[in-house]
Design a protein around this nucleic acid. Structure first.
Lengths: 232, 232
DNA sequence: CGTCACCTTGACGAGTCTCAAGTTGTGTGG
DNA sequence: CCACACAACTTGAGACTCGTCAAGGTGACG
């Protein structure tokens, strides 16, 4: 994909309502793009907060606690917008789960330009609020849930984001490794594996290969996730 | 405090640059206010997402997992802005830690009006990004840190938000109970208590009464928190 | 000054981690 | 297309952190 194509991808996904020409050309002038191979961390040591649009592929945002200890703070898929901080109490790295096409902006420049276009800021704000809501849900899972609840919660949440229906079940492709899942749920790969086996034995899920999952009983999974019972 | 005073409080805190008169009067017309007593949960069952400004006092945002299990997702102090979701995978409650003065808006109306004032949206966005950053840091703590690290992390973070310097140490008043701290850190009150005793024995903190803390050695606390060493 | 909720401390047990061994899937080269 | 090699995953046994239960302390009120 060429740069203009990628910027277009960003424009139509983030600005479906359109924007004024000068704003667009300003944005395009500060936009950069990169394609990342699986495992790449294109923003390591870049020094400024970035706003990154996932034009293709999928990524994880990882916090490094100490050698060997990592926490996956979020996963992202095509069409998502990520705020990648330069620094905080911990170092963060955006890392490609598969080959990716990324459009990115220095956050400062982006917000500066966005001031001209309330529409755009509102869209970003709405997406940021959704990220915040997901991050809070993650805190709940990490702080107060058992391994089984975390796994069930993870599966139904991912199903909502990237799953599809087939034969009355929901299927999804979990491209991330067991280690990534563990690092996202605050568990070890062994515990992840054991809990998946539990769910398989309970006939709540089927797996084929390493990444293909079939969720056979969403209501039960929601219950095991400790989620609110939805009326109706 | 009267309503106009409270709205003024909001205006000067959130809109230091000012805003156009029509926007302000529109905002004022959808703004509501309430004073909450300690322990009150003024937004329970209100049914719509709210944007809440803490004009006075302090609050916690709590997710209810199951009877007896709660997760405090964030604490808020005077001048903070909170997004209170109506519903998600879990029920959330904003709860007063002490007597509070709150200004609040239905999120939809607020964003609708804010479209007229890019300045305002940018401010809200910046605050939301800070909330997101804090929420991510909390995920890191909950997912990959020991009890001791969580406590140290909590203390230095709170010190940055509400602490003051005195005699070469940082003091702060932790108005929330040990239970609140535990529910925030994914620990029990007993573990919180034990870890505080550890930190006392290590001469890293002093406490007087239930809520007054003195942090005697910030660098060591940062180290125990597993935080990044800051150059310089 | 007394009362009560809140906090502290101790002993024990459950859930998850660690370490280790075996199995399965995936990708590569013949 | 098959066989091989390696990484990823699964499963098991024992250790450790933190939770649970229980019994005192302590500080903040009236």
């Amino acid at each position: 994909m060429t740069f203009p194509d990628l910027f277009d991808e960003f424009r139509t996904a983030v600005l479906p309502g359109g924007a004024s020409d000068p704003t667009l050309s300003n944005l395009e002038s500060v936009a950069r793009y990169t394609s990342a191979r699986e495992g790449d961390a294109p923003f390591n040591g870049i020094g400024v907060d970035q706003i990154v649009f996932i034009a293709g592929g999928s990524t994880k945002l990882v916090a490094h606690v100490s050698q060997g200890r990592e926490q996956v703070v979020a996963f992202h898929f095509r069409g998502d917008l990520v705020s990648v901080p330069a620094s905080a109490a911990h170092a963060y790295t955006l890392c490609a789960l598969e080959d990716c096409e990324l459009v990115f902006f220095p956050a400062d420049d982006f917000l500066q330009i966005a001031q001209q276009e309330p529409h755009l800021v509102i869209t970003i704000l709405e997406r940021t609020l959704r990220s915040l809501a997901r991050s809070r849900e993650k805190s709940v899972a990490l702080g107060r849930k058992t391994a089984e609840e975390r796994l069930a919660s993870f599966l139904v949440t991912m199903a909502e984001r990237i799953g599809w229906s087939r034969d009355g079940a929901v299927e999804l492709d979990l491209i991330m490794s067991r280690r990534d899942i563990g690092d996202s749920l605050g568990l070890t790969i062994e515990t992840v594996s054991r809990q998946l086996s539990e769910l398989r034995n309970a006939c709540l899920i089927e797996t084929s290969g390493r990444s293909r999952f079939r969720l056979l009983d969403l209501p039960s999974l929601h219950r095991r996730a400790g989620h609110l019972e939805l009326a109706g």
